[in-house]
Design a protein around this nucleic acid. Structure first.
Length: 828
RNA sequence: GCCGAGGUGGCGGAAUGGUAGACGCACAGCGCUUAAAACGCUGAGAUGGCCUAAAAACCUUCAUGUGGGUUCAAGUCCCACCCUCGGUACCA
């Protein structure tokens, strides 16, 4: 063991703390600001490999940027509200607050063990009243501007967690947290009107240089489709009319993306939850059958409804709809393939040109009328083409005629989004209390700013009953009565934790501010965030929500920009050694602490950075020998320094100019490494950055003695990757540097305060270059030319290679391709 | 189904249209050692050939999922297909 990592780590971390090295002065005008953000962790209590991957690797970049002269803000905090705390309370009787704060304390220590350069002075804690006061304040702002709404809607309910969920938290019909199948309920809940921003959330993506998969995932989630609303007049049966049913004629409004096919509409479908059904009841001749169908669908889970693709439905006997184009009378069905939550909950069915309608029509033996020429394509044909059977529009192109058809049938062009408003109420305890009270009439009112933070009560029963735990608090009721008066009642729900995390990055700028959610001048200077690194699971959740928040706050003139993240990187995941996702049941979980103990934090950091490109969300199996090999690499550097340190004491050298004792090719090697490492890090390709360092070390090792001042830039370049070891080596070098090292200011500081070595780019261009010689595109050898070598020189040299003359076989090249500095290709 | 990202040695992965396999792991041989570990050195895509007791060296051909194409030159560009991963899905 060439070095004692635990000793080195301890000393280095103490040194950084005593120098207060990572506190960013946000108002510093001398350096360019760079805001590097990592998703703040949930304080689950144990640091796993994912945390290391997220924080330790990003830290490399933070350190590197500082050395390159940037004023780097690299903050950390805790996303500290959420279910696990509450579940621990239910299970072990722990107090969620104590549980959370104890976990945070533990995690701070664990996080620090990675040696990250977080600025802890700006820490935010989402469950702390000093933070959630501002979550509440922002919610009130949204409420005042009608962007937060209390309304009844069909919502997703998790029977296990006993709470409603946002659409985004339902994955494959199951609760994102616990995997339980969700059910649908009609409830009055709080919504944030993200749908108002659908178009702008879409537009904003155009300008962002994010990876395509992130942008397309968001686009798909927003799900824009353009089409039209069309209205279908409803006719009730003569029998019912004779009985004196009112002659008010209801219409069915449908949304369709293909109004051009309306001549082919042969029936209409309503979702089983469609509100018109209530009004139809009296006119129905098969009311019982219809009732039964409605009941049956209501009992199905989301999943059951979509899993069984076999079409079902019931015809509404006694009512019919009039096709506004053909004036024909058409049957009306209810069927669960029409979704209440999309469009108008009603569909005009065109069996010839829609797969679902086609299936349904076949099963129920409904007419299938072709109105778009399908040439040889099979029915149903969903493409466009010349119109058939379409009255005055026959022969026109379906796409081109669309607008005219909409006008002709009295329709209205419309754009529909798949995105739903963000449901933010949760019937749970450990969350931010919704800052709302209800007057005696039940009307919601914002809690005035002077009463914020609106504290989470502590006298509650956590047992999930489907009712919000806050409802069991006497203190809360009393508080409301005292402040607002008799008959006023509290809101008992808490906010989705994604609300807490939608703005935390603003708070980092001024986390101690008791009067504002953030600082306006600092926001102007530091936003948008330069680079945000996180998990791909948040693409359609947190990242989308944060973008929405930013746009809403921008409209309220609270923030200076309407996109929060200039760059977003989704990192990959670390798999178990067997190539599978780590899980306790598979027994392939890697505990980072074991490796840290054995090989040191630096080796683990560097291994994670080396495991694969960090700029794409790949999945990388943990190699059991990987950390050990990185440790070896670090030990080789240590030996290299130790072996050559003697020379330093003999050096006449003073100051921190590295050039003097360095021979040209070594300087070239250093220059190469310095440039390559910085470039690759900018692309988040730490794997190749480390490879560049390894190449440098390999080259230096090959030398009998390493020139003294080569070691300094080497250690500086190592510092972002292996911050503890680099600090130790730096200290060693300072001792060896000169007998009176104390007088040398540069060495008293930390290696992390040094400037990234910059070399003249001209160093990289040497006087000669190796050029590949090809004959007919096949490599036959190589020649060395001066950089000014011409094509004629190259041809002459090439002909001296036997393999080349062999391949030419005496023929003269018909053509010569010469790429200076790269290649010469002789074509015969 | 649709959309997106990919497919390169035994493995993780490198390669602005210009020497494919950087760097590392694992592996093999050698050195050091009484021995092992550690460390160091060397080797290595596949195939065939030529020499050989065997090897080295040398040479040939084939090699970046498959099949075509563009180009002096293709992992990289174009077309078709197959497969893997991710997103989404009865969204009218």
């Amino acid at each position: 063991m060439a070095y004692d990592h635990s000793d080195i780590e301890k000393k280095a971390q103490e040194k950084w703390a005593s120098l207060d090295l990572y506190r960013a002065d946000l108002s510093d005008e001398t350096k360019e600001p760079y805001y590097l953000l990592v998703e703040f962790p949930y304080p689950s209590g144990d640091l796993h490999i994912g945390h290391w991957y997220a924080f330790a690797v990003t830290d490399i970049y933070a350190r590197l940027l500082r050395m390159r002269g940037k004023n780097v803000l690299f903050p950390i905090g805790f996303d500290a509200f959420g279910l696990p705390a509450e579940n621990a309370a239910i299970k072990n009787g722990a107090d969620p607050k104590e549980w959370t704060y104890a976990n945070m304390e533990r995690m701070r220590t664990q996080l620090k063990s990675m040696g990250p350069s977080f600025d802890w002075s700006k820490e935010v804690v989402a469950c702390d009243p000093s933070y959630y006061q501002w979550t509440q304040w922002l919610f009130v702002k949204l409420f005042e501007h009608k962007l937060a709404e209390h309304r009844e809607a069909a919502v997703k309910w998790c029977p296990k967690d006993q709470t409603v969920l946002a659409n985004e938290q339902v994955i494959d019909g199951k609760c994102e947290r616990c995997g339980t199948e969700v059910v649908e309920k009609r409830l009055t809940q709080w919504f944030l009107k993200i749908t108002d921003y659908a178009e702008r959330l879409l537009d904003g993506l155009e300008k962002l240089p994010w990876r395509e998969e992130i942008k397309t995932a968001q686009r798909a989630w927003i799900g824009k489709s353009e089409g039209a609303y069309l209205s279908f007049e409803v006719r009730t049966s003569d029998v019912q009319n004779a009985l004196g049913t009112s002659d008010v004629r209801p219409t069915i409004k449908v949304f369709t993306t293909r109004p051009d096919t309306i001549f082919g509409a042969t029936y209409v479908v309503l979702a089983p939850e469609h509100p018109l059904l209530e009004g139809f009841r009296k006119s129905l001749m098969n009311a019982e059958e219809v009732e039964a169908y409605i009941k049956a669908t209501a009992q199905k889970t989301e999943r059951e409804r979509s899993e069984n693709k076999e079409k079902t439905g019931v015809r509404l006997e006694g009512v019919s709809a009039i096709n506004p184009a053909t004036k024909e009378e058409m049957p009306i069905y209810i069927a669960d393939y029409a979704l209440a939550s999309y469009g108008t909950g009603a569909v005009m069915a065109v069996p010839a040109h829609d797969e679902r309608d086609f299936e349904f029509a076949q099963k129920f033996e409904l007419p299938i009328r072709e109105v778009v020429d399908r040439s040889n394509a099979p029915t149903p044909y969903t493409g466009t083409g010349a119109l058939l059977n379409s009255g005055e529009f026959i022969g026109r192109d379906s796409e081109e005629a669309m607008g005219d058809i909409v006008t002709a049938v009295g329709g209205e062009k419309a754009t529909m989004y798949r995105l739903r408003d963000w449901l933010v109420s949760r019937q749970r305890y450990w969350g931010c209390p919704i800052p709302i009270v209800y007057d005696p009439e039940g009307k919601p009112h914002a809690i005035p700013a002077e009463h914020l933070p609106w504290l989470l009560p502590t006298d509650v029963d956590f047992t999930p009953t489907g009712k919000a735990p806050l409802a069991s608090s006497y203190e809360l009721k009393e508080r409301v009565t005292n402040i607002f008066g008799e008959g006023w009642t509290p809101e008992y729900d808490t906010l989705d934790t994604f609300v807490d995390s939608s703005w935390y990055f603003l708070r980092y700028l001024d986390s101690q501010d008791a009067h504002n959610f953030s600082d306006a001048a600092l926001m102007k200077k530091w936003l948008p965030i330069n680079r945000y690194s996180g998990g791909s699971e948040h693409t359609t959740m947190h990242v989308l929500y944060a973008r929405f928040f930013m746009k809403a706050l921008y409209d309220l003139a609270l923030v200076p920009t309407d996109e929060p993240f200039a760059e977003r990187f989704n990192r990959g995941i670390i798999l178990g050694p067997d190539g599978h996702k780590m899980s306790k049941s598979k027994g392939n979980v890697i505990n980072p602490d074991e490796f840290v103990q054995k090989y040191g934090a630096d080796a683990v950091r560097i291994y994670l950075a080396f495991i694969g490109p960090y700029n794409e969300p790949g999945s990388y199996p943990w190699n059991l020998d990987g950390v050990a090999s990185m440790r070896k690499f670090l030990e080789r550097i240590t030996r290299l320094v130790d072996r050559n340190i003697e020379g330093l004491t003999k050096s006449q050298h003073t100051g921190t100019e590295f050039k003097d004792f360095v021979s040209p090719n070594i300087e070239q090697a250093l220059a190469k490494a310095s440039i390559k490492v910085a470039e690759d890090a900018d692309r988040f390709k730490f794997n190749t950055a480390i490879a560049a360092l390894m190449i440098l070390v390999n080259e230096l090792e090959a030398l009998p003695t390493v020139p003294k001042d080569t070691l300094l830039p080497l250690v500086i370049m190592l510092a972002p990757f292996a911050p503890h070891l680099a600090e130790d080596l730096w200290a060693k070098l300072s001792k060896g540097k000169s007998p009176d090292a104390s007088s040398d200011e540069a060495f008293r500081e930390s290696v992390h305060q040094q400037v990234w070595p910059v070399y003249d780019a001209s160093l990289l261009t040497s006087s000669t270059v190796e050029i590949t010689v090809q004959v007919n595109g096949k490599r036959r050898g190589s020649i060395t030319l001066t950089t000014s070598g011409t094509e004629a020189d190259a041809v002459r040299e090439a002909h001296k290679i036997p393999a080349v003359t062999n391949a030419l076989g005496g023929r003269e090249p018909k053509r010569v391709i010469f790429v200076p500095g790269k290649i010469i290709n002789l074509v015969v």
